[in-house]
Lab assay of single mutants.
Amino acid sequence: KTVEVNGVKYDFDNPEQAREMAERIAKSLGLQVRLEGDTFKIE
């Protein structure tokens, strides 16, 4: 899975870890996480 923030992509081998990281980043920035294919987009 991939986490994308402001056009910057971070790859994770563990999908659960990617989801947790995406949620943590989104919460700290006051944004939403949206799953698009294999990418968690933070917008």
Rank of each mutant, 00 (worst) to 15 (best):
K1I: 12
K1R: 13
K1G: 09
K1C: 15
K1P: 07
K1F: 15
T2V: 12
T2R: 13
T2I: 12
T2P: 03
T2C: 15
T2Q: 09
T2S: 14
T2H: 13
T2M: 09
T2D: 03
T2Y: 14
V3F: 04
V3G: 01
V3T: 01
V3E: 01
V3M: 03
V3H: 02
V3D: 01
V3W: 03
V3K: 02
V3Q: 02
V3I: 10
E4P: 02
E4N: 07
E4Y: 13
E4S: 10
E4F: 12
E4H: 07
E4D: 08
E4K: 06
E4A: 06
E4Q: 10
V5D: 02
V5F: 14
V5Q: 01
V5Y: 14
V5N: 02
N6L: 14
N6W: 14
N6T: 03
N6A: 08
N6E: 07
N6D: 09
N6R: 07
N6S: 07
N6K: 06
G7Q: 03
G7A: 03
G7Y: 03
G7C: 13
G7N: 05
G7S: 04
G7M: 04
G7L: 03
G7H: 05
G7W: 03
G7E: 02
G7K: 04
V8T: 09
V8A: 07
V8D: 04
V8H: 09
V8W: 10
V8N: 07
V8S: 06
K9P: 05
K9N: 05
K9E: 05
K9Y: 08
K9R: 14
K9C: 15
K9V: 11
Y10C: 15
Y10T: 05
Y10L: 07
Y10A: 03
Y10M: 09
Y10F: 11
Y10I: 08
Y10K: 03
Y10E: 02
Y10R: 04
Y10G: 00
Y10V: 06
Y10P: 01
D11W: 15
D11R: 15
D11I: 15
D11Y: 15
D11S: 14
D11T: 15
D11F: 15
F12M: 05
F12S: 01
F12K: 01
F12L: 05
F12D: 00
F12E: 01
F12G: 00
F12Y: 08
F12H: 03
D13F: 08
D13G: 08
D13M: 09
D13Y: 06
D13I: 09
D13S: 11
D13H: 09
D13V: 09
D13W: 07
D13P: 10
N14S: 13
N14R: 08
N14A: 07
N14M: 07
N14F: 08
N14Y: 08
N14T: 14
N14D: 14
N14W: 07
P15W: 12
P15N: 08
P15S: 10
P15R: 07
P15A: 13
P15D: 08
P15K: 07
P15E: 13
P15H: 12
P15C: 15
E16Q: 12
E16L: 10
E16Y: 10
E16A: 12
E16P: 02
E16S: 10
E16N: 10
E16H: 09
E16G: 08
E16F: 11
E16C: 15
E16R: 10
Q17L: 12
Q17D: 13
Q17G: 06
Q17A: 12
Q17Y: 08
Q17N: 08
Q17S: 10
Q17M: 12
Q17T: 11
Q17H: 11
A18R: 02
A18V: 03
A18W: 05
A18Q: 01
A18E: 00
A18T: 01
A18S: 02
A18F: 05
A18H: 00
A18Y: 02
A18N: 00
A18C: 11
A18G: 02
R19A: 07
R19P: 00
R19T: 03
R19D: 00
R19L: 09
R19N: 03
R19V: 04
R19Q: 07
R19M: 07
R19G: 03
R19E: 05
E20C: 15
E20P: 00
E20M: 13
E20V: 11
E20W: 12
E20F: 11
E20R: 13
E20Q: 12
E20K: 13
E20D: 09
M21F: 15
M21Y: 15
M21R: 04
M21L: 09
M21I: 09
M21C: 15
M21D: 01
M21Q: 06
M21E: 09
A22T: 00
A22G: 02
A22K: 00
A22I: 05
A22D: 00
A22F: 06
A22V: 05
A22H: 00
E23S: 08
E23T: 10
E23C: 15
E23M: 14
E23G: 06
E23I: 13
E23L: 13
E23K: 08
E23F: 14
R24E: 08
R24T: 09
R24K: 12
R24P: 00
R24F: 12
R24C: 15
R24I: 09
R24N: 08
R24Y: 12
R24G: 05
R24D: 05
I25C: 15
I25H: 02
I25D: 00
I25Y: 07
I25P: 00
I25E: 02
I25T: 06
I25R: 02
I25N: 00
I25V: 09
A26D: 00
A26S: 06
A26T: 01
A26H: 01
A26G: 06
A26W: 04
A26R: 02
A26P: 00
K27W: 10
K27N: 10
K27F: 10
K27H: 10
K27G: 07
K27I: 10
K27S: 10
K27C: 15
K27L: 13
K27M: 12
K27V: 08
K27P: 00
S28M: 14
S28T: 11
S28L: 14
S28E: 14
S28V: 12
S28D: 10
S28K: 14
S28F: 14
S28R: 14
S28Q: 14
S28N: 09
L29M: 11
L29P: 00
L29Q: 04
L29Y: 08
L29H: 06
L29V: 03
G30D: 04
G30P: 00
G30W: 04
G30R: 06
G30A: 04
G30Y: 04
G30N: 07
G30M: 05
G30T: 02
L31Y: 10
L31A: 12
L31W: 13
L31C: 15
L31Q: 05
L31P: 00
L31G: 10
L31T: 06
L31V: 11
L31S: 06
L31E: 03
Q32C: 15
Q32K: 14
Q32G: 08
Q32L: 12
Q32M: 12
Q32T: 14
Q32V: 14
Q32S: 13
Q32F: 12
Q32Y: 11
Q32E: 10
Q32H: 12
V33R: 00
V33M: 09
V33I: 12
V33F: 13
V33A: 06
V33C: 15
V33N: 02
V33H: 03
V33P: 03
V33S: 03
R34N: 06
R34I: 11
R34T: 10
R34Q: 07
R34A: 05
L35D: 05
L35E: 09
L35M: 09
L35I: 13
L35S: 05
L35R: 07
L35F: 09
L35Q: 09
L35C: 14
L35G: 02
L35H: 07
L35P: 03
L35N: 05
L35V: 13
L35Y: 12
E36T: 06
E36H: 07
E36K: 04
E36D: 12
E36V: 13
G37L: 05
G37A: 06
G37M: 04
G37P: 02
G37I: 04
G37V: 04
G37T: 02
G37F: 06
D38C: 15
D38V: 05
D38R: 05
D38F: 08
D38M: 07
D38K: 06
D38Y: 07
D38P: 04
D38T: 10
T39Q: 03
T39S: 06
T39F: 04
T39I: 13
T39W: 03
T39L: 08
T39Y: 05
T39C: 15
T39R: 04
T39M: 08
T39V: 13
F40L: 09
F40V: 02
F40S: 01
F40A: 01
F40K: 00
F40C: 04
F40I: 06
K41P: 00
K41C: 14
K41W: 07
K41F: 14
K41N: 03
K41M: 09
K41G: 00
K41T: 06
K41Y: 15
K41A: 03
K41I: 15
I42G: 01
I42A: 02
I42V: 12
I42N: 01
I42H: 02
I42E: 01
I42T: 03
I42P: 01
I42W: 01
I42F: 10
E43H: 08
E43F: 14
E43P: 04
E43Y: 14
E43R: 08
E43D: 11
E43I: 13
